[in-house]
Simulated scan of single mutants.
Amino acid sequence: MAPEEQSAVRVIRPNRLTGWSAVVLTVVLVWLAASYVPLPWAGAAEPVVWVALLAAFLEALWRFDFRPQLRWNRGGLVVVDGSRVRRLAWHEVSSVEVRANTILVRATGEVFQARYDRPYWLPLLAKRYRDLPSTIEEDLNSVRVGALHDSTVPPPETGDVGRPAFLYVAFAAGVVGVLAHHL
């Protein structure tokens, strides 16, 4: 196997269409709520409360619906489990198991869960989607077993993917919508 094939990083991430739809829906709902739901307890800080709420929702969407959940190569893997990001060499991983839409990675006293999207109706349409969990599990385990005998390739870097520019644009649009109503 060529060195570039050994170090090639494979990625599992949530569905971007679902994530972007959630971002747009969040911005619209927060804007509508800020327009029609008064917060008498917040007083003059009401716009700040709505902007903070929008920021919290968009941050949660970033963490759970945009970041790659699992990256791996012959050297190891990087798993994102909520706010935890861990870089593990294959010798630290005791098992990898795929259940429905979750990949469980067990490593030295810790269990990580990486989520991937697979709508329930896709397996009804095509066999490749029906076999996706077992294909992912077989691929991860074959790379893990092969890497235990050859650990010259380092695991992928943990370098977090930067937030997409559209996320900032959506936040700015939400802030403008909230402030337009309150100022």
Score class of each variant (00 low, 15 high):
His149Met: 09
Pro154Asp: 04
Leu179Gly: 04
Ala147Lys: 00
Ile103His: 06
Val85Tyr: 00
Tyr168Arg: 10
Leu167Trp: 03
Arg74Glu: 12
Val11Met: 11
Ala147Cys: 07
Leu183Ala: 10
Asp150Ala: 15
Asp131Pro: 03
Ser7Lys: 07
Phe112Ala: 07
Gly82His: 03
Val93Tyr: 00
Leu124Pro: 00
Pro154Gly: 01
Leu77Ser: 01
Ala180Glu: 08
Arg86Gln: 12
Arg16Thr: 13
Asp65Ile: 01
Arg106Thr: 14
Thr102Lys: 05
Leu179Val: 15
Val51Ala: 13
Arg115Cys: 06
Leu183His: 08
Trp121Gln: 07
Trp72Leu: 06
Pro164Glu: 09
Leu148Glu: 10
Glu5Trp: 06
Val27Ser: 05
Lys127Cys: 05
Val30Tyr: 00
Pro155Cys: 05
Asp65Pro: 00
Arg128Cys: 07
Pro156Trp: 02
Val178Asn: 09
Leu58Ile: 15
Leu54Tyr: 02
Ala45Tyr: 04
Pro68Leu: 11
Leu53Val: 15
Leu125Gly: 13
Tyr116Trp: 02
Gln69Trp: 03
Thr135Pro: 10
Ala89Cys: 11
Gln69Ile: 02
Val9Leu: 05
Leu104Lys: 09
Gly76Val: 01
Tyr116Thr: 02
Val98Arg: 04
Gly76Ser: 07
Leu122Ser: 08
Pro119Asn: 08
Pro3Gln: 06
Ala170Leu: 08
Ser134Cys: 02
Val93Leu: 05
Leu140Pro: 13
Val111Phe: 00
Glu92Trp: 03
Leu122Asp: 12
Asp150Gln: 15
Ala172Leu: 15
Phe171Gln: 04
Arg13Gly: 06
Val96Asp: 01
Ala170Asn: 03
Glu59Cys: 04
Met1Ile: 09
Glu97Phe: 03
Asp160Ser: 09
Arg130Pro: 09
Ala52Ser: 12
Asp160His: 03
Ala42Ser: 13
Trp72Ser: 08
Thr108Leu: 09
Leu70Pro: 00
Glu110Thr: 11
Leu167Glu: 01
Ala52Pro: 11
Arg87Leu: 00
Val24Gln: 04
Ser7Glu: 14
Pro119Ile: 08
Val98Lys: 03
Pro3Tyr: 02
Trp121Thr: 07
Glu4Pro: 01
Asn101Pro: 14
Leu132Met: 12
Asp117Ala: 13
Glu4Phe: 06
Asn15His: 11
Ala165Lys: 02
Arg87Ser: 00
Ala114Val: 12
Ala180Asn: 05
Arg71Trp: 01
Ser94Ile: 07
Trp50Tyr: 13
Thr135Leu: 11
Ala147Asn: 02
Leu183Lys: 02
Glu138Trp: 00
Leu132Gln: 11
Ala89Gly: 15
Arg71Asp: 01
Asp81His: 11
Pro14Val: 05
Leu167Val: 06
Ala33Asn: 06
Ala126Met: 10
Val37Gln: 10
Trp121Ala: 06
Ser95Thr: 10
Ala34Glu: 09
Ser95Glu: 11
His182Asp: 10
Arg16Val: 14
Asn15Asp: 15
Glu157Gly: 07
Phe112Tyr: 14
Ala56His: 00
Gly76Arg: 00
Val176His: 03
